[in-house]
Amino acid sequence: MTVNLRGDLWFAMELRSVRLLALMQVAVSVALSTLVFQTITGNHILTPSIMGMDALYILIQTSLVFALGGLGYAGLNAQSKFGVEVVLMAALAWGLFLPLLRYSHALVLVLLGGIVLGVLFRSLSSLLARLIDPNDFAVVQSVSYADFNTVNGELLLPGLALTLVALIVSWRARHRLDIVLLGMPTAIGLGIDWPVLAVGLMLMVGTLVAVSTAMVGPVTFLGLLVVALSRRIVGSDRHGPLIIGSVLVSIILLVGGQTLVGSYLGNALPLGVVIEFAGGIAFVLMLFYGRRL
């Protein structure tokens, strides 16, 4: 927090602590949503973002701008708007993505379904974006790109609360998540109430995606990168160590990366781009080398 600090100390500390908290919260929610999503789908490659969940969030934003106009959108109460979005995202995660999981034995099918959904959401967004006037479009654009420099401070507290709840819920469910990893038939045989647990976890994933996307915008490959790295570091698929590991890796990557990029590279390189680049490469490598990675 004190790297390269100049000027009014109090002002800088306040600004930076808000940003630090926001980044940590994004880090935690991205790590958790990805880890839990991968466990329910029983694979290491799909993430909520790859499946198009943050494209869905952008679609919601664009529709709002379309319906209310740029001014109306800006005039919305940030917190109540956020509340509605979280509920909507959780509901859509449950309604759209859970049915896809029935085919989780056919990874390709799920991946295809997710990509089709993602393209659909993005195309709908761009269709709406074409219909609105250029000023409103600027508003849409500001929410549809990942930006770690300007975080949404108004949503800090509600986001923090949701992320903490999700962290506690996943930590308490860590043993059950271990069992879920064995696949649906075995998990039911071991007394896991699958329908209840799967729906509950999907709702949580939807909420977490909404939280992180609302804070900084969509980051497609961050979750993938973080969880894959922590799997390597932890060397086990037990959720106890994995939850701790991926949360820590995620925080180090985001906060450390932002410090580096912001303070030493003079913001010449947006962190979002760096992470997408590294994550994209990791994604391709994982597709090529599969389980060996």
């Binding site: 029983g42 694979n43 034995h105 990893l181 064995l182 696949g183 038939p185 799997r231 060397g235 086990s236 698929d237």
Partner: peptide, 8 residues
């Protein structure tokens, strides 16, 4: 089905 996912 005998696919056991994960490193256990």
């Amino acid at each position: 089905d005998n696919a056991v996912a994960g490193r256990l």
